[in-house]
């Protein structure tokens, strides 16, 4: 189950083995004919999610919203179209068959995931948070100073998340009284 087979590996490429197929040509032509672009270059502009250079990306998607091309944004002053191998690979990041696409729960002691819906999972998550918070909440410390905190829940956040994700996470975590709040910047 955990071993990656060759099939999975290639499948993960998100592309077929059919490389750029050129149309028939008249041999020995001096003038180069114009070949049609075999796919869209892309108009959607975004920023690379890897390093902190903040390079611009151009993204093209197919009709289902899946990325079919990713390259550098030539207008972006930080990279002028240039990208490293990771940034180019955002296409596979988004379209990878290994992406998590289902809400899942692992029961205590279980050896597999069970799939569920958001509607099933969120109440369970909220219940765990509330119960632990309520059980471990400290209103005051030994000196009688109001502390309104819980040591029972910790939050660790990502440094690849958007500002707004982080803001909402911190707002929610602090409002719940969390003091164990850490993330990648520390390590």
């Amino acid at each position: 189950m955990l071993e990656i087979s060759r099939r999975q590996f290639l499948k993960g490429s998100g592309v077929s083995t059919g490389a750029l197929l050129l149309p028939p040509m008249v041999p020995g032509r001096q003038e180069v004919p114009t070949f049609a672009l075999h796919k869209k270059v892309g108009e959607a502009r975004t920023i690379c999610p890897y390093c902190s250079c903040g390079c611009g990306l151009l993204i093209a998607t197919d009709s289902t919203g899946h990325i079919i091309n990713s390259e550098g944004d030539p207008d972006h002053p930080n990279n002028r179209g240039a990208l490293d191998p990771k940034s180019i690979s955002v296409r596979q990041l988004s379209t990878s068959p290994h992406r998590l696409s289902k809400v899942m729960r692992r029961a205590p002691g279980a050896s597999e995931w069970e799939e569920m819906t958001w509607e099933e999972a969120i109440p369970l998550v909220a219940r765990r948070i509330k119960d632990t918070r309520d059980d471990t909440f400290q209103t005051t410390d030994d000196n009688g100073v109001t502390v309104n905190r819980t040591n029972g829940i910790a939050f660790i956040g990502g440094a690849a998340n958007n500002d707004e994700d982080c803001y909402i996470a911190v707002k929610l975590a602090r409002a719940l009284g969390l003091v164990y709040i850490e993330h990648q910047a520390r390590i």
């Binding site: 890897y50 390093c51 902190s52 939050f155 690849a160 982080c166 003091v179 990648q184």
Partner: peptide, 17 residues
């Protein structure tokens, strides 16, 4: 050279104790 695409932002937003 900050290590991640938004470690600057996540730090600005204070995901730190």
């Amino acid at each position: 050279l900050r290590g991640e695409s938004n470690v600057q932002g996540s730090t600005d937003m204070a995901i730190l104790f």
